[in-house]
Design a protein around this nucleic acid. Structure first.
Lengths: 163, 163
DNA sequence: ATTAAAGTTTACTTTTTTGTACATTATAAT
DNA sequence: ATTATAATGTACAAAAAAGTAAACTTTAAT
């Protein structure tokens, strides 16, 4: 199980846009420079994020991209699902069925149950974490240069228990 | 995040081999029929499993594949890592770094920390589960036809708390 | 009105993953 | 020894994911 490029870069772009202070948002050239990705590549990623409703575009000169909703209303788990799918879905059994219409393991399927177990664990780990939490965590952790990772983790954990 | 074909089919083949009662193991043609996969495809999957040390082959007529170790000694988490990699590894930052040598987010990287959080959750969910647990769970759940899934889950959970 | 800077769309290329084909090697049974 | 059945290795083909290129549309500034 790996993270796909789309999940990784999609999330980075969301964080960049959410962190921006500008009113008319971040442009493709700006994000391209910040993240060191080619402009067409950024354009492609942002088009996915726009079509899935996470960002809005402002066209014309001086335009760019802004969040479609407040960062508090954007769950990381939703965002990741949109960018890279889920480990387990009810339709899972239609995916890997070799050379037959219906999966051979219909009925009690130990593997299916394993994937569901993993999915539940992931959902629990991400439960309640919003884009806002990531941004805040980043800001707080940036203050001092010691224990940054631990601080960030704490911030996230604190945000989660409140929900 | 999705399960790769290699993880899915690799695990299925391991379960098939581990469940077999035969002394000289299961052959490629047999697994091919059981799982409805082409013989070359099964051959490829088994070659990976053999090279990573999970199964041993018995060549020549009447040959096949058997587990390289007892199913109690095969952790599902290890098996899955071998087949499909891990969500988070210490070398993660070398993977997605756009057009530069070193990732732009060196230092406090919120995404990195998220992936690690997910990895920890997955490891915890699979902790202690062995191939043997899956086989036993399957056998027990097969007894009655009601509540099969719940029974299977229970079996796995019981196996885990003992460790 | 024209221009420049931005997003949008479509098509393409490259790379990785997935799956196939077939010739080769090994061994048990005859 | 020969044959049948099985694994092994190498090369190839197809599909999916990742990334690039370029023509087109929109809008603010001049």
């Amino acid at each position: 199980m790996k993270i796909s490029a789309q999940e990784e870069y999609g999330l980075r772009c969301m964080i960049a846009i959410a962190s921006s202070k500008k009113d008319n948002g971040l442009s493709i050239p700006e994000i391209s420079k910040m993240e060191r990705l080619s402009e067409p590549h950024v354009a492609k990623i942002l088009s996915i994020l726009r079509k899935t409703g996470y960002i809005k575009s402002i066209r014309g000169q001086g335009g760019g991209y802004i969040l479609a909703r407040s960062p508090e209303a954007i769950l990381i788990s939703d965002l990741l699902s949109s960018l890279g799918g889920r480990v387990f879905t009810p339709e899972f059994c239609d995916r890997f069925n070799g050379h037959t219409e219906e999966c051979v393991h219909k009925g009690v399927c130990p593997i299916n149950i394993l994937w569901e177990k993993i999915q539940i664990a992931i959902d629990r780990a991400l439960h309640g974490i919003t884009l806002s939490d990531i941004i805040k965590g980043l800001n707080n952790a940036g203050d001092k240069n010691s224990n940054q990772k631990h601080l960030f983790m704490q911030n996230i954990a604190n945000a989660q228990v409140k929900r």
